[in-house]
C-alpha cells in the first residue's frame, strides 16, 4: 500500500471504538463555566467608556482648531471637502486597486457640501444677529471664486496669527468669512451646532452622525486625542482600546499591513489592504483546497501530540 492511497480515504468516525460521553452534560458545564468566568472578568475589570467628543467640547477646548477647520470647510480644503465619493465629486479623488476604482464606481451616495452643510446652513438655522445676516447675504451673493479667495486668505492669515487666534489676525480682504466663522464658533460652544448638524434635513428623530463626525474628523483635535490613546492607524490602532483594556486583537493582521511598505506610504493603502485581506479571508475559507497550506498540519506534527493516545495504541502492523 502506498502512503498516498492510505491518505486518500479518511475512514468514517463511526468505525472506531467509542467510549461513553454525555454531550448535554458537557455543554451545560461549559456554559456554566463560561458564564461564571465572564461574570468574574466583568466584575473585576468593568469596561471602558471614554466620554465622546462633541462639537461643543471641541470648540470650547480648542477654539483655534475649530475655527481653522470651519474655514477649511468654507474654502474647500478640508479632508471631507476633497474626499470624493461617496461624499462629493472631487476630480481625481478615490482610491484604486491597480486600475480598479471601486470608490468612484460606487458613486456619490452621501452627498456633502462642506461649506453649505457644515457652516452656512447651521448659521441660517440659528437666530441671526444683524452682522451675521449681512455676512450670509454677502457670502451668498459672491461668486464661487470670490468666496474661495476670501476663505483662503483668512485661512492663511489664521495660520500666521499667534496660536491661530482669530482675534489676532492681521487685517485683510477676508470678506464675510471672519463674521461667519466666529458666529459658528459661538454656536458650537453653546452646543447648538451638535444638534443642528443632525437635524439639517428637518428631522426630529435622527440616528445618522455622518455630518458631525466628518466635521470633527477634519480638525486636528480629535486625531490628537486618538493619537494619545494609541488608536491612530500608524500605531496599530485598529486593535487597540482606550485605557488599558484589551481591544480587537483579532484585527492584528489587518492593522499590520498599514505599518509596512508598500501600504504605509501608499495613497491607496485602504483599498489595497482591503483587497489583500479579502484575498486572505477567501484563502482561509478555502484552506482545504490550497496545496501546501493544507499539508501544514501533516508537516507540523502537532496532531501527533493531540492524538498521542490514539497513535500510541497504533503500533505499525508487522
Amino acid at each position: 500500500m502506498t502512503r498516498r492511497n492510505r491518505r486518500a480515504a479518511t475512514p468514517e468516525s463511526s468505525a472506531f471504538p467509542t467510549r461513553p460521553y454525555d454531550l448535554i452534560k458537557e455543554v451545560t458545564i461549559a456554559m456554566v463555566l463560561v458564564a461564571a468566568l465572564t461574570a468574574g472578568l466583568a466584575a473585576l475589570f468593568s469596561s471602558p467608556d471614554e466620554r465622546p467628543v462633541t462639537l461643543g467640547s471641541w470648540s470650547r477646548t480648542a477654539s483655534a482648531d475649530f475655527t481653522a477647520t470651519a474655514v477649511s470647510e468654507l474654502d474647500g480644503t478640508s479632508t471631507t471637502a476633497q474626499y470624493g465619493p461617496p461624499y462629493n465629486h472631487t476630480p481625481g479623488a478615490g482610491q484604486k486597486i491597480g486600475p480598479l476604482g471601486l470608490q468612484r464606481l460606487a458613486g456619490v451616495r452621501i452627498p456633502i457640501d462642506t461649506a453649505d452643510d457644515f457652516v452656512i446652513q447651521p448659521l441660517r438655522q440659528a437666530p441671526e444677529p444683524p452682522a451675521v445676516t449681512d455676512a450670509l447675504a454677502a457670502w451668498s451673493a459672491a461668486p464661487a471664486n470670490q468666496q474661495q479667495a476670501w476663505a483662503s486668505a483668512y485661512s492663511d492669515a489664521l495660520g500666521k496669527a499667534p496660536n491661530g487666534d482669530p482675534a489676532q489676525v492681521a487685517p485683510g480682504g477676508y470678506g464675510p468669512v471672519p463674521v461667519l466663522t466666529s458666529r459658528l464658533l459661538q454656536l458650537a460652544q453653546s452646543g447648538a451646532l451638535d444638534g443642528e448638524l443632525l437635524t439639517e434635513g428637518g428631522q426630529f428623530y435622527q440616528t445618522d452622525y455622518t455630518r458631525p463626525l466628518l466635521f470633527l474628523g477634519d480638525g486636528t483635535y480629535f486625531a490628537n486625542l486618538a493619537q494619545a490613546q494609541h488608536l491612530a492607524g500608524d500605531q496599530w490602532g485598529m486593535m487597540n482600546e482606550t485605557g488599558n483594556y484589551p481591544g480587537q486583537a483579532w484585527l492584528w493582521l489587518y492593522t499590520f499591513w498599514y505599518q509596512i511598505e508598500p501600504f504605509k506610504s501608499s495613497g491607496n493603502a485602504d483599498a489595497l489592504v482591503w483587497a489583500l485581506m479579502a484575498l486572505l479571508s477567501v484563502a482561509l475559507v478555502l484552506v482545504p483546497f490550497i496545496p501546501g497550506i493544507r499539508s501544514i498540519p501533516r508537516w507540523t506534527r502537532v496532531h501527533r501530540l493531540i492524538w498521542r493516545d490514539y497513535y500510541r495504541t497504533q503500533q505499525p502492523p508487522r
Binding site: 466584575a43 473585576l44 475589570f45 468593568s46 471602558p48 490613546q229 494609541h230 500605531q235 496599530w236 486593535m239 487597540n240 482600546e241 482606550t242 485605557g243 488599558n244 483594556y245 484589551p246 481591544g247 486583537a249 505599518q259 509596512i260
Partner: peptide, 26 residues
C-alpha cells in the same frame, strides 16, 4: 472596578510592532 484599567494605556514597542500590554497578555 477592583482593577482599574482606565488609566493611560501601557504599550510595548518592538521595531515595527506596537502592542498594548493588555493585548499582549491576551
Amino acid at each position: 472596578a477592583p482593577i482599574d484599567l482606565d488609566g493611560t494605556g501601557r504599550y510595548v514597542h518592538w521595531g515595527v510592532v506596537q502592542i498594548s500590554v493588555a493585548n499582549l497578555v491576551v
